[in-house]
C-alpha cells in the first residue's frame, strides 16, 4: 500500500520547506493521523518511511517519542484532560472523574462502545483558564461541571 495521492501531493509541497526530507516527518505524521483513522498504524509508518526514504524503524522511533501520536486506534471522540499543576489546583481531578463517568472510559482507554477515548495530558498552555480539556482538537476552558454536561450533551447532534 502507499499513501493516498491527495496526501503525497500535499507532502511533496511540504518537502520544499526544508533542506532535508526527514524534517517533514513530524508534520507528515500529524496529517496521516488526522486523515488515516486517528492513529499511526504500522502500515502508515511503512508508507511514510517509503515516502521519505527512511527505514520504518526510524519512523517508529520518532513517532513513539511524541505523546501526540497514537499507536492504537482511538474511539470516535478523543478527550484529553489536562492534569498538570494549574488545572489540578482548580479541580482537574474532579473534572477527570466526571469525564470518565460521562464517557464510560477509564483514562488512557476507550469506552466499550468505542465512542470515547479519554486521556490525561500534561499542561496544554491554558493554565489561566483552568481546568480544561481538549475534545477532538478543540480546547474547552474554564470548565465547570455544568459546562461539561452541556458539551457532552451537544455531541453528535445531542444523541
Amino acid at each position: 500500500m502507499a499513501l493516498p495521492a491527495r496526501l503525497t501531493t500535499e507532502f511533496t509541497e511540504l518537502l520544499t520547506h526544508y533542506p532535508k526530507k526527514q524534517a517533514a516527518l513530524i508534520p507528515i505524521l500529524h496529517r496521516c493521523q488526522e486523515e488515516l483513522g486517528g492513529w499511526i498504524s504500522p502500515q502508515t509508518m511503512e508508507d511514510c518511511a517509503e515516502f521519505l526514504g527512511l527505514e520504518a524503524v526510524e519512523v517508529y522511533g520518532v513517532a513513539s517519542f511524541y505523546p501526540m501520536f497514537r499507536m492504537r486506534p482511538p474511539g470516535k471522540h478523543v478527550v484529553s484532560v489536562c492534569h498538570n499543576i494549574s488545572c489540578a489546583l482548580r479541580g482537574a481531578d474532579d473534572l477527570l472523574a466526571q469525564v470518565c463517568e460521562i464517557t464510560g472510559a477509564a483514562p488512557h482507554h476507550t469506552s466499550a462502545d468505542g465512542r470515547f477515548t479519554v486521556a490525561t495530558v500534561e499542561c496544554q498552555g491554558a493554565c489561566a483558564n483552568a481546568p480544561m480539556f481538549d475534545l477532538d482538537g478543540v480546547y474547552h476552558e474554564d470548565l465547570t461541571p455544568e459546562k461539561v454536561v452541556k458539551i457532552f450533551g451537544g455531541l453528535d447532534g445531542g444523541k
Partner: peptide
C-alpha cells in the same frame, strides 16, 4: 510553550 503555568505566547 509547554512550561506548566505558561500560556502567554498563545
Amino acid at each position: 510553550e509547554s512550561e506548566p503555568g505558561t500560556c502567554k505566547d498563545r
